[in-house]
Write a protein that binds this DNA or RNA. Structure first.
Lengths: 224, 224
DNA sequence: ATCAGCCGTGAATAGTTGTTCACTTCTTCG
DNA sequence: CGAAGAAGTGAACAACTATTCACGGCTGAT
């Protein structure tokens, strides 16, 4: 063999792969999943359509990786926020607020990742994505239950319900319109966080306190 | 003119139209929205593919009417259940339970109506459907707030969040598996109803009582 | 009975995109 | 430099279905 992959080439290949994924992500953030078609993504990544297939076996695989990537980022953010909280209830509040802020700051992308119709089958990766996030929330609920802050309950079902509430009310088709206004955005985040905390059994008065504390650090994340 | 539509013909045309819609509904209930293709629906309705287009200008229109029809039924059931309740809080509990029971008893259809990817654009009719149901729930929350049973809140946002929670936890991809078992089904309905009531501010103890009362009549609706 | 006009038909059409592949260009190493 | 092989290209292909439409049969008034 007179040709071997040199380190430089390996790096270039990895960079190109990332560029294609990034192009897909940007496209989805702008125009939703429907806009993520091979040809436009290829153009955006400065490659030919055929090149995309050197890196991803199919469009389904490309989108699956996109979903996985976004999901990873989301999960990391949730963990970071929750781990920084002083107690289990605060951690849960922080986790919920983080999800709310995240989906609001990238609404089209979130909608695409979560629910937008896609012409290829991405159900397994969407399922995995939901499972990860839901599992994390469930763990936080469980911690609060074990600490005696919440009544015993089916934490997995509760976590799923909370995420459904957040997504539907913030990025679903009935989501309020003017969420670009920072004040309205904060109100919406507070409102849904309050709903979520009460849903799992936090007393109204205590929930209101937790919400206020959770929203302060989360606001800083909006830019991230 | 030597031909005019006689009453008999008008009736036959209406019947055929209904048959096509019913075929579409059955198909969706069995195989989801993806299975609702013109050719299979036509076969099921005992007509040719072209005939479908004598009754519906496009597939999008057919599915839109399907969504509207299911939505109408759902709304009627919610109103019936809520109006039969003794007070505003019971009415809200009944409404929530009704939604839960309905989506569970026709999970594939519900998923198709609500969120399943469709190749044609049905966003407007889905939006209308959600608006109707959400509006009804919002009205019930509002009634409970005005009766002093709940704290003041953004009822529209709360209603949307509740529906999101119900749908995601009961028909979403993370919904529990063995909901065919009646006991498990009842547990799931009770759990999510409890979550929903607490979310809007019903005290835990009181919410548990409302749930029990609401689930009794709702169980009878499962067959409907 | 008969004919005008509507209803029903289903094979053919058309438009959309993911995917392929023969060919070109680039990279590595003797 | 030149050969070997990998990466990149993009036009052509394939598959899937909604939609069309020219034709045959049915319905209803005369």
């Amino acid at each position: 063999m007179v040709y071997r992959r040199t380190h430089q080439v390996v790096k270039r290949l990895a960079a190109r792969r990332s560029a294609i994924l990034a192009a897909a992500r940007d496209t989805a953030a702008e125009g939703g999943m429907a806009a993520v078609q091979i040809a436009p993504v290829a153009v955006r990544a400065n490659v030919a359509a055929g090149t995309v297939y050197r890196y991803f076996p199919s469009k389904a695989e490309l989108i699956s990786e996109l979903i996985a990537e976004v999901s990873r980022d989301e999960l990391a953010a949730i963990r970071r926020a929750a781990d920084a909280a002083p107690g289990p209830s605060s951690a849960l509040a922080a986790a919920v607020t983080t999800v709310a802020v995240h989906v609001l700051s990238q609404r089209k992308l979130a909608w695409g990742i979560l629910a937008e119709p896609v012409d290829v089958d991405v159900s397994v990766s969407r399922l995995a994505s939901r499972r990860e996030i839901s599992g994390e929330i469930a763990a936080r609920i469980d911690a609060a239950v074990r600490a005696g802050h919440l009544p015993a309950q089916d934490t997995a079902l509760a976590a799923t319900a909370l995420l459904g509430a957040l997504h539907e009310s913030l990025v679903g088709p009935l989501a309020p319109e003017n969420l670009d206004d920072p004040a309205k955005l904060r109100d919406a985040v507070q409102t849904v966080t309050l709903l979520a905390l009460r849903a799992v059994g936090v007393m109204d008065a205590r929930a209101r306190g937790l919400v206020v504390q959770a929203v302060l650090p989360a606001k800083a994340l909006v830019g991230a």
